[in-house]
Simulated scan of single mutants.
Amino acid sequence: MSDITAADVKHLAGLARIDLTTDEVARMTEQLVSIQHLIATVQEVATPDVPPASHPLVMHNVTRDDVPGQVLDREAALSGAPDRDETRFRVTAILGEEQ
């Protein structure tokens, strides 16, 4: 694996339209080379019998299954409404206009 050069960082910064100073290019080059070496170290210990994971602990979906239960019919739902018409709740207009 080849190391990242300052020319590579300048090229990528140009593609991303990021204006980097000479000091920023030097610092970014150093940081990216360090990251590249860390990735190489991880690749050395990665084995085919260890599946890739996004989290060190096995995570499971903890939500319950969505099972339909008993529902109210329309008349029961509207029975406690302070104002209603035949099939709907009636509320005060909030946008200043009746729709």
Rank of each mutant, 00 (worst) to 15 (best):
D23S: 08
G96H: 04
D66N: 12
A40Y: 04
H60P: 00
L20F: 11
T22K: 11
V45H: 10
V25T: 08
V42L: 13
G96A: 02
R88M: 07
V42N: 08
S79R: 12
Q36P: 00
A46E: 13
T5A: 07
D19Q: 11
L78D: 00
V50Y: 07
Q43K: 14
L57S: 02
D65Y: 09
V9P: 00
A53F: 08
D3M: 15
S34Q: 09
E86P: 00
L72F: 04
S79K: 13
G14S: 05
G96R: 01
V50N: 07
S54V: 15
D66R: 15
D66L: 15
M59K: 09
V25H: 01
D49E: 14
E30R: 12
V71P: 00
V58N: 05
A13V: 03
L12D: 02
A76V: 05
D65H: 13
T47K: 15
M28K: 05
I35A: 02
L78T: 02
P48M: 13
S54C: 08
R27P: 00
T29K: 03
D85K: 03
E97R: 15
T92S: 04
Q31D: 08
D8T: 09
H55D: 06
G80E: 07
M59N: 03
N61H: 14
V42D: 07
D19S: 11
P48Y: 13
D8F: 04
Q31T: 07
V71F: 02
T29A: 03
E86W: 06
S2C: 04
Q31V: 12
D66T: 10
D65S: 10
T63V: 12
A7V: 13
D3W: 12
A76T: 14
T92F: 06
A26L: 04
S2Q: 11
A77H: 02
D65F: 13
D83N: 14
A81D: 02
A16S: 07
L32C: 03
L15Q: 10
I39V: 15
Q43R: 14
A53R: 13
P56Q: 07
D83Y: 09
L15F: 09
R74A: 10
D73Y: 03
D3P: 05
L57W: 04
L95W: 04
I4N: 00
Q70C: 04
D23W: 04
D66A: 13
R90T: 09
R90M: 12
D3V: 11
L32Y: 05
D66M: 12
G69D: 01
I94K: 10
R27V: 10
Q99G: 08
V42G: 07
T92R: 14
T21R: 04
D49Q: 13
P51N: 06
L72Q: 03
A46V: 14
E97W: 11
V9F: 01
A26Q: 03
L20V: 01
L72H: 02
E86I: 09
V62T: 12
H11N: 09
D73I: 04
P52W: 08
I4Q: 00
N61I: 13
L32A: 03
G80K: 10
A81N: 00
T92Y: 02
D23H: 04
T29V: 08
A53N: 02
D49C: 05
D3L: 15
T63F: 12
Q43S: 14
T5V: 08
F89C: 02
